[in-house]
């Protein structure tokens, strides 16, 4: 790797920004969850089960936002060859996959009492499931590229191909669902009441800040890995030169 696009400057910002994002994210998420779990009236139709909304929606938002981050970073990396962008894409993949999984899990738990089943092949559920598999593919590809010393542009290309395909997958799944069965499940909400909206917005913000903190922390870890590798290699070369 031909020297980083100034990792020093990145680290000087990331070093204080990471704990800041973590602390503010945890505080906001805690406030939102406390508000959502104890201070919001139960829903008319769904009762107390509606409270899972405050984890489910931020997780869904970040599951999709994670791939957006991968796509933008991949584009920046491919066009401007900015090395930190490749690290950012790799760093965003794992939390993105985790939040997608959390979204699927909470949705499944929510579906049990309200829909009477753990899983339905509903358009939105299905496209999240496909998205999860795209994340798995991306993570596996990025890992084997990193392990075998391949070009980091390979996962970036896959990230962009995936980003082009995600809307197609999403539309096709929705369309497929309408082909098979009439929408037997419609969410029992026409519009969200402000009583729900405020804590929900705080939860989304808090989760997003946490996501940013995780990405920065993982980028720092990846950078440290690369720097340790480079130092070892320099040492090995130096020893050979001496011998």
């Amino acid at each position: 790797m031909h020297g980083f696009a100034n990792p020093k400057r990145f680290l000087s910002i990331a070093n204080w920004l990471t704990p800041l994002l973590f602390v503010s994210g945890i505080v906001l998420s805690a406030v939102a969850l406390w508000w959502g779990l104890f201070n919001v009236p139960p829903d008319r139709l769904m009762g107390d089960t509606v409270r899972i909304l405050f984890i489910h929606v931020p997780a869904a938002w970040l599951g999709m936002g994670g791939w957006t981050a991968i796509a933008i970073s991949s584009l920046v990396f491919l066009v401007w060859r900015h090395p930190l962008a490749s690290l950012a894409a790799r760093a965003a993949a794992v939390p993105g996959a985790v939040f997608t999984a959390v979204c699927l899990a909470t949705g499944s738990i929510w579906g049990r009492p309200t829909w009477g089943t753990w899983w339905v092949w509903d358009g939105r559920l299905t496209s999240m499931l496909v998205l999860l598999f795209l994340y798995f593919g991306y993570i596996a590809l990025a890992q084997s590229v990193a392990r075998e010393g391949g070009s980091s542009r390979i996962p970036a290309i896959f990230g962009l191909v995936g980003a082009v395909n995600i809307p197609i997958i999403n539309r096709s799944v929705v369309w497929w669902n309408s082909l098979h069965q009439p929408p037997s499940i419609t969410m029992g909400k026409s519009a969200i009441d402000p009583a729900f909206l405020v804590p929900l917005a705080i939860a989304v913000l808090g989760f997003s800040l946490l996501f940013g903190g995780i990405v920065l922390a993982r980028m720092r870890a990846l950078l440290a890995d690369i720097q340790a590798d480079a130092r070892l290699r320099r040492k090995a070369m130096g020893d050979e030169a001496l011998a």
Binding site: V130, L131, F133, L134, F136, G137, A140, L141, S144, V145, E148, G150, S151, I154, F158, V161, G162, N165, I168, I169, R171, S172, V173
Partner: peptide, 21 residues
């Protein structure tokens, strides 16, 4: 996946989600 030793195993996982539509 051409340059990767683990490419063969990976390609199935990469292909399936893209082939869904």
């Amino acid at each position: 996946t051409a340059g990767l030793r683990t490419g063969a195993a990976l390609s199935g996982l990469l292909l399936i989600p893209l082939a869904v539509p």
